[in-house]
């Protein structure tokens, strides 16, 4: 018997590959070559065309596939090899697990008692700069980018004659935990490298948050951030590392960070 499904062969190329992803979806564009150039200028999903006012089928399905991948990425762990390579020991905030991390950011800003004791026992005090690494919302961001950016920052500071403290890793960390960290360390500048929440197609963006003498009551307004550190359409970690070093030098020179630094620097200009 000759059944129709014997003749059905659906064997697709991976739609997430760059050339598939970047395929032009506009039917009869005004300027095809020009449209290709526009699309090449950004990672944004442009040149996708339309089915009536709605997206075309392939761009709609690709979007949903990327969302699926991002959902799967949220629950990763930072690799032990990465921590070992950078010489980081691990401490925890007051958060117990990943669900609590999502629902209770206040606990992610506070070190647990064990962490405080460990840091006090293992870290040198009052360096000019203290660097810490946190998982945040993307372990992939730390796994991919921390081994690249960390040595750049450390070497950049050392060659500028700036002293650097004992680095460590904080599990279930939020940015504000640097206030607690510095209560023990007493550094002039604290840098935390933290995984950002995954975007679509970019699940490994790292951010560096920096504060001058962070402590109780210090907020985002007192901090600076270098965000979207990734090889996937952001600032690459090597370039970002150099930028972070320059930012730290400015903070040390002006004895300030965040809005305060901005005001001081606009006064100098």
């Amino acid at each position: 018997m000759d059944r129709a499904d014997d003749k059905v062969i659906i064997d697709l190329p991976d739609p997430t590959l760059p050339e598939e992803r970047r395929a032009i979806g506009v039917k009869n564009p005004h300027d095809l070559e020009g449209l290709r150039n526009l699309c090449a200028a950004t990672t944004a999903r442009i040149g996708v065309g339309r089915a009536g006012p709605r997206p075309r089928t392939r761009s709609l399905l690709l979007f949903h596939a990327d969302h699926a991948a991002a959902q799967d990425a949220i629950y990763g762990e930072v690799a032990e090899e990465v921590k070992a390579k950078l010489g980081l020991f691990t401490v925890k905030t007051q958060v117990a697990d990943r669900d609590e991390y999502l629902l209770r950011p206040d606990l992610g800003r506070r070190l647990c008692d064990d962490a405080k004791a460990t840091i006090a026992a293992r870290c040198i005090r009052q360096p000019q700069v203290q660097i810490v690494v946190g998982d945040g919302l993307s372990a992939a961001a730390v796994n991919t980018n921390a081994p690249e950016i960390y040595p750049i920052i450390e070497q950049g500071l050392k060659s500028a004659g700036v002293s650097v403290g004992t680095p460590f890793f904080i599990q279930f960390a939020r940015v504000g935990v640097i206030n607690d960290v510095n209560a023990i360390i007493g550094a002039d500048v604290v840098v935390i490298l933290l995984g950002e929440r995954p975007g679509l197609g970019v699940a490994d963006a790292l951010s560096a948050y920096l504060g001058y003498r962070p402590g109780p009551g210090k907020t985002d307004a007192d901090r600076d951030v270098v965000c979207m550190i990734t090889y996937h359409g952001g600032m690459n970690p090597l370039e970002a590392g150099a930028y972070v070093v320059e930012l730290i030098k400015k903070m040390l020179r002006h004895e300030s960070s965040g809005i305060g630094l901005k005001i001081k620097m606009s006064g100098v200009e």
Partner: peptide
């Protein structure tokens, strides 16, 4: 209005 609802910079939809 964001291309396909996916913001290329802010990591949200």
């Amino acid at each position: 209005g964001v291309p396909m609802g996916d913001d290329a910079m802010l990591s949200y939809q």
